[in-house]
Simulated assay, not measured.
Amino acid sequence: MDLRKKRHIAIDRAINELRSGRPIIINNKSENWIFYGIEHINDKFLSQITSKKSKSLNAFLTNKKMLDLSLDKISYNDQTRIPIQISDIKWLKSIHTRKINRSDIIKFKKIKLLKTPLFLNDMIDLAKNAKTIPCLIGCLINKKSINHSIMVFKSTEIKMQNKLISESTKMVSESTIPIKQDYNAKIKVFKSFIGGLEHVVLCLGKPNNNKTVNLRIQSACLTGEVFHSMKCDCGEQLNQSIEYLSKNGGGYIIHLEQEGRGIGLKNKIRAYNLQHKGMDTIDADRTMGFVGEERDFSIAVKILKDLGVKKVNIITNNQDKIKALKNSKISIAKKIATYTEVNKFNVNYFASRLIKMNYNIKLK
């Protein structure tokens, strides 16, 4: 088996272990580290592990969470390592799902920051790709104490995850699907074989891939597209895009399984709960340790290249999508805006996206 294929399998398995709530072990040179995701932590198991060694437990938090906890500027890369006791785990869980208070900041200021191995950035990526809260509990363990039911990976096997996930994306099925705007529309399903997420391409009309093609890149939004939530404009954007394609020579809608701007459905609903308590959509994501925009549009680029599309009219208000396409040498002939209606449930959502994200919005 070539090294690249071996890494594909390792990353896929590591993601699924964390997603399922199981710990994993990372071998980094002569060291062995065991990691649990914060939302699936098992205190009894940790007590057994830590009783067999002298090293302390550590928590690994993202830089966005560190900003949430610290009033001062601190030096860190993508994540930071802090020493903890098992009794701290309940507190760590809680600060990822609620607003930080003064006592949290005082408690944090007393904690000494530790030097972090570089592969821990890849571990945070694994947690994000598993759609779990990106906070890990880990410690060094003696190789002799390793439970053989726990999967072991080399630190070199979990690098460049997002690039390999995109490359692993391939079409797995297709069919005709009659929709209101096109009785002969086509649907294609693409699967990312690393991580297992499935994405959909809806094709209206007969777009000529050798010419400019109309395109909408839509991220999944169960609440907006299916249940017509009034907190966002995702359903409106999808419907307007389908209408535009049907009246302007057809084209593609790439529907990415990137719920909640890439954080996953359960975390999105956690964010909804934080918003209900007064946070805006960006701060709610950052409270959980996310950056506010976790989507990876390289998957859409891979799909476009598989379709043979090189030049597009893009339907979007998101400048990050435009940048991702341009950086991947997909030419943009025209940008078409979508329009949204403001209501009392979404006005703060749009205000925070305008102010804090690379986003332009056309309001009705």
Rank of each mutant, 00 (worst) to 15 (best):
residue 206 K to V: 11
residue 55 K to E: 14
residue 337 A to N: 11
residue 142 N to Y: 04
residue 3 L to D: 12
residue 274 L to H: 04
residue 19 R to L: 11
residue 100 I to E: 02
residue 229 S to F: 08
residue 128 K to F: 01
residue 121 N to S: 12
residue 106 I to A: 12
residue 266 K to C: 04
residue 322 I to N: 02
residue 20 S to G: 13
residue 299 I to A: 00
residue 190 F to H: 00
residue 15 I to Y: 04
residue 283 D to E: 14
residue 239 N to Q: 14
residue 195 G to T: 07
residue 283 D to N: 12
residue 45 F to N: 05
residue 342 V to L: 15
residue 81 R to P: 02
residue 309 V to H: 01
residue 200 V to L: 15
residue 77 N to T: 13
residue 294 E to R: 08
residue 137 I to P: 04
residue 25 I to C: 10
residue 315 I to A: 03
residue 234 C to V: 14
residue 360 N to D: 11
residue 351 A to K: 15
residue 40 H to Y: 13
residue 219 S to K: 01
residue 75 S to V: 13
residue 59 A to C: 09
residue 183 Y to S: 13
residue 327 N to A: 12
residue 364 K to V: 14
residue 198 E to K: 15
residue 326 K to N: 11
residue 247 K to V: 05
residue 248 N to P: 00
residue 25 I to V: 15
residue 98 R to E: 08
residue 170 K to I: 15
residue 9 I to T: 14
residue 319 Q to N: 15
residue 325 L to H: 00
residue 319 Q to D: 09
residue 131 K to H: 14
residue 27 N to H: 11
residue 84 I to V: 15
residue 148 H to P: 00
residue 161 Q to M: 09
residue 136 L to T: 03
residue 346 N to A: 09
residue 313 N to T: 14
residue 320 D to A: 12
residue 25 I to T: 08
residue 206 K to H: 09
residue 241 S to K: 04
residue 277 K to N: 11
residue 54 S to Q: 11
residue 340 T to G: 14
residue 288 M to D: 02
residue 333 A to L: 10
residue 6 K to S: 08
residue 310 K to I: 03
residue 304 L to P: 04
residue 186 K to A: 06
residue 193 F to A: 00
residue 173 S to P: 00
residue 202 L to Q: 01
residue 353 R to M: 13
residue 87 S to E: 11
residue 233 D to L: 06
residue 327 N to E: 12
residue 283 D to R: 02
residue 102 R to C: 03
residue 202 L to V: 11
residue 104 D to Q: 01
residue 78 D to I: 09
residue 75 S to Y: 09
residue 27 N to F: 06
residue 144 K to N: 13
residue 36 Y to K: 04
residue 237 Q to E: 08
residue 52 K to N: 09
residue 121 N to D: 12
residue 359 Y to G: 03
residue 134 P to K: 04
residue 55 K to F: 10
residue 234 C to N: 05
residue 12 D to R: 10
residue 293 E to M: 03
residue 182 D to G: 05
residue 2 D to Q: 02
residue 167 E to Q: 10
residue 232 C to V: 09
residue 157 E to F: 05
residue 23 P to Y: 01
residue 222 L to I: 14
residue 351 A to W: 03
residue 158 I to T: 06
residue 154 K to L: 13
residue 69 L to V: 07
residue 171 M to W: 00
residue 88 D to F: 06
